[in-house]
Simulated scan of single mutants.
Amino acid sequence: MRVTVFGATGGIGQLVVQQLLDNGHQVTALARTPAKLTLTHPNLTLTTGRLSDPAAVRTAVAGADAVISALGPSLERSVTGTPLTEGTQNIVKAMEAEKVTRFIGLATPSLADPKDKPHWKHRVLPVMAKLMFPNALAELTGMTAAVTRSGLDYTIARITNPTDKPATGRTRSGFLGHDKIGSAMSRTDIAAFLIAQLTDTRYRRAMPAISN
Rank of each mutant, 00 (worst) to 15 (best):
M1G: 13
V5K: 11
V5H: 13
V5T: 08
I12K: 11
G13D: 14
G13Q: 10
Q14S: 14
Q19I: 02
Q19K: 14
G24Q: 09
G24H: 09
Q26Y: 08
Q26N: 04
V27T: 06
T28Q: 05
L30C: 06
R32S: 10
P34S: 05
T38C: 08
L39N: 11
T40G: 12
H41T: 13
P42Y: 09
N43A: 14
G49M: 09
S52T: 08
D53M: 05
D53A: 05
P54T: 06
A55T: 13
A55N: 04
V61Y: 00
A62T: 15
G63T: 03
G63A: 05
A70K: 10
A70C: 14
L71N: 05
G81Q: 01
P83G: 04
P83K: 00
E86D: 14
Q89M: 00
A94H: 02
T101P: 00
T101M: 08
S110V: 11
A112S: 10
K115I: 01
P118E: 02
P118H: 02
H119M: 06
W120L: 13
K121E: 12
R123S: 08
L125V: 15
P126A: 10
P126M: 10
M128E: 07
M128D: 02
L131M: 15
P134F: 13
P134W: 14
N135C: 06
A136S: 15
A136E: 14
G142W: 04
M143P: 07
T144P: 05
V147W: 10
R149I: 01
S150E: 04
I156C: 02
I156N: 03
I159L: 12
T163G: 08
K165H: 12
P166I: 09
G169Q: 03
R170S: 01
R172A: 12
L176T: 04
L176R: 10
H178D: 05
K180M: 05
S183H: 12
S183P: 00
M185Y: 04
T188M: 03
A192F: 03
F193S: 04
L194T: 04
I195A: 09
I195R: 07
L198P: 11
T199E: 08
T201L: 04
T201A: 09
T201H: 12
T201V: 05
T201Q: 14
R202H: 12
R204H: 03
R205Q: 12
A206H: 09
A206K: 10
M207R: 01
N212Q: 14
N212D: 15
